[in-house]
Simulated scan of single mutants.
Amino acid sequence: MFKLILVAIDGSEIGHRALEEALAVARSMKAALHAVHVVQTETYPTLMLNELEPPDLARQAVLDSLEREADEILAEAERQAAASGVRMTVHKRRGHPGAEITALAQELNADLTVIGSHGRGRIDRFILGSVSSYVVDHATSTVMVVRS
């Protein structure tokens, strides 16, 4: 029996599927549900910079954009949870996604962590490594990996 579930969401299709699975488990077990989106801060300092802008300004523009996107993803997840009758608490973290997800799961004392099998695309997996593998390897809770 799970009492507290953490679901990692990233705005991808597989992230939506992970949320749907987490909502179904939370509803059936009457568990508390938390969702987390991690703004990856260490990967983007040079990948998306406009050469016309000073590097610090360009980096900040990218980070601001990622923060806005995170807020939108979390707001949509809250709407989806409310529509399905599940109360959900959202968290926005910054840093390495795998490390932040596992750290939050530990802080919350989550019984179950739900995550998609991969993120937004092959390039992200190549650049970032496999977040789901990291979570499986480092989580102290049970992990459900949702496939597409």
Rank of each mutant, 00 (worst) to 15 (best):
A70F: 00
V62S: 06
K92D: 09
L57F: 07
S28K: 11
V36K: 06
A18K: 00
I5Y: 03
P54Y: 15
L66E: 10
D56P: 10
H91K: 06
G15K: 02
A82E: 10
K3Y: 12
V38I: 06
I9W: 00
L63T: 02
N50A: 08
I9S: 00
Q40A: 15
E100P: 03
E21P: 01
E69D: 04
E78S: 15
K92S: 08
R27S: 13
G98P: 08
A61D: 04
N109D: 12
E21G: 01
P45T: 13
Y44Q: 08
G85S: 14
Q60H: 15
L57W: 06
G15R: 01
E100N: 05
L104F: 04
S12T: 08
E78M: 14
A77Q: 04
E76C: 08
L66G: 07
R27C: 13
G15M: 01
L57K: 12
R59T: 08
A61Y: 03
R94F: 13
E20L: 05
H34S: 05
L52R: 14
Q106E: 12
I73A: 06
E21I: 01
P97C: 05
R59A: 10
E69T: 07
N109K: 12
E78I: 14
K92Q: 13
V38N: 02
A99S: 09
A77K: 03
H34F: 04
E20K: 07
S65F: 02
I73N: 05
L33C: 09
T41K: 01
E69S: 03
A75G: 04
A22H: 01
A75R: 05
D56R: 13
H96T: 12
A103S: 06
T89P: 11
S28R: 13
E107T: 10
Q40T: 15
Q106V: 10
A58F: 00
T43W: 13
I5V: 13
I73H: 07
A31D: 03
D71E: 15
Q60A: 14
G85W: 12
L63Y: 02
V38E: 02
G11Y: 01
I101N: 02
A103W: 02
T43R: 15
R68I: 04
E69A: 06
K3A: 14
E107R: 09
A22Y: 01
M48R: 13
T46P: 10
T102D: 00
A31P: 07
